[in-house]
Simulated scan of single mutants.
Amino acid sequence: MSTLLADTGNPDLGLLQAVNGLAAGAPHWVDSLVSWVGEYGILLGLAALCLTAWLQARRRPDAPVAVAGLIWAPVAVALAELANLPISAIVDRPRPFVDHPELVVLVEGKEGTLSFVSDHSTMSMGIAVGLLLVNRRLGLLAGVLALLQGFCRMFMGVHYPTDVIGGYALATAVVLLLAPIAMAVLVPFCHALTRTALAPLVVARGSRSGRAETRRRRRGTAAPAPAPEEPAAERDLAA
């Protein structure tokens, strides 16, 4: 089988064997825990961070801009995953345990799938970079989870280190390079939502930005002021 990365160099394989070797000596419950965290847990944690960031963004003075940035994060991840389809097909790299059966594999059903780049690493880093553009504290926390994701995928024996790094690079490039174009579309969209019944999704009621938006809507929909009454003398002349 012709592959671009089938002949893995010693640093790549050596690091994978060092991390995956921890699974061989760990108790069964540790292997099960790391497998669950690497497959589902970190993604659920990132979803919780996104929810927290959204609740905070709705109360910011620039709420429509902040919410637009949060919308961009999952959209960018979807675009990165689409970009990975041709990349994965071109590289055509099998899972590490296919060429190295001595590895400990902690997840089933991956035999017929490709290894480069790591989808889980792409998703986690895409969310982390997207959050970092909106909320530095939550973005850094998401970055830690993204790094942990890469470790878990190697621990589970389903990805080489370069698969993980490739996922990080792909996600970061998509999020940062396309952000100006995305925000040019999403910011006006979020501003438009504030003038509809979906406004609470963008601006929290009772926040400073929410009160300002309410005042703008009232000014825009207020009934026109009545015309001043004609003086009595002018009414008499008209009669």
Score class of each variant (00 low, 15 high):
residue 79 L to P: 00
residue 189 F to Q: 04
residue 80 A to R: 08
residue 97 F to R: 11
residue 235 R to E: 12
residue 3 T to Y: 08
residue 87 I to L: 15
residue 185 V to C: 08
residue 219 R to M: 13
residue 37 V to M: 14
residue 175 V to K: 08
residue 202 V to N: 01
residue 197 A to L: 12
residue 30 V to L: 15
residue 44 L to R: 11
residue 91 V to I: 15
residue 230 E to A: 14
residue 92 D to F: 08
residue 218 R to G: 03
residue 161 P to E: 10
residue 179 A to E: 15
residue 106 L to K: 07
residue 105 V to F: 06
residue 124 S to Q: 08
residue 145 L to M: 14
residue 64 P to S: 05
residue 235 R to Y: 00
residue 193 L to H: 02
residue 120 H to Y: 05
residue 111 E to S: 13
residue 48 A to K: 09
residue 34 V to E: 03
residue 18 A to M: 10
residue 106 L to F: 05
residue 153 R to S: 06
residue 148 L to M: 14
residue 151 F to I: 08
residue 10 N to L: 10
residue 147 L to C: 11
residue 210 G to Y: 00
residue 111 E to A: 15
residue 107 V to I: 13
residue 108 E to V: 07
residue 8 T to P: 00
residue 72 W to N: 03
residue 153 R to F: 05
residue 159 H to N: 10
residue 107 V to T: 14
residue 226 P to W: 09
residue 174 V to T: 10
residue 98 V to E: 11
residue 129 V to H: 09
residue 92 D to R: 11
residue 138 L to D: 10
residue 44 L to S: 03
residue 45 G to Y: 00
residue 141 L to R: 09
residue 84 N to K: 14
residue 70 L to N: 04
residue 183 M to I: 03
residue 92 D to P: 00
residue 55 L to V: 02
residue 19 V to G: 08
residue 38 G to P: 07
residue 54 W to G: 08
residue 46 L to T: 00
residue 97 F to E: 06
residue 19 V to Q: 10
residue 163 D to A: 03
